[in-house]
């Protein structure tokens, strides 16, 4: 029992990321407002970013910039730079793709006068 708790204590942050991710996924599936779906997408992406950056963390490590006093003999002295690079580009790309999503949402609102998915579907079926 004690070992199980220790195991959970070492991994507890993953449950947080999964919770955030599932909140975003739920928003994307269940919300009928298109703008709220976009927000759900953003929450989902945030969980992925947190997950990646946590993977790169090392105990007692500094930022991934060379410290002349420390040197590079021991790689454990620096955080893993790779997740930082991946998430750096992912953040900017997520902003740009959010712009595209907002442009599409704006066009839908102009054509249908609403952002509620069921109302748009009704209008498309009925007329």
């Amino acid at each position: 029992m004690h070992e199980l708790l220790a195991e959970f204590g070492n991994k507890f942050h993953y449950y947080g990321y999964f919770a955030i991710m599932m909140i975003g996924l739920y928003a994307m599936i269940a919300k009928t407002n298109l703008l709220k779906k976009c927000i759900g997408l953003g929450i989902f992406q945030t969980a992925i970013m947190l997950f990646y950056v946590s993977i790169g963390a090392k105990e007692g490590a500094g930022i991934p910039i060379l410290d002349p006093a420390v040197g590079t003999a021991d790689p454990a002295a620096y955080a893993n730079p790779l997740p930082h690079v991946l998430m750096l580009t992912a953040i900017v790309v997520s902003v740009a793709t959010l712009g595209v999503a907002l442009a599409l949402v704006q066009n839908i609102h102009r054509d249908h006068g609403t952002l509620e998915e069921d109302e748009i579907l009704q209008r498309l079926r009925g007329k």
Binding site: H13, I55, G56, K58, E59, A61, Y78, N80, L82
Partner: peptide
Amino acid sequence: FPRLGDPDSAPSRHLSPAYIQ
């Protein structure tokens, strides 16, 4: 998954030292 801050985790073992050094 590796525990938080594990210096010997798989992502930190293979490519990362090559980048750092």
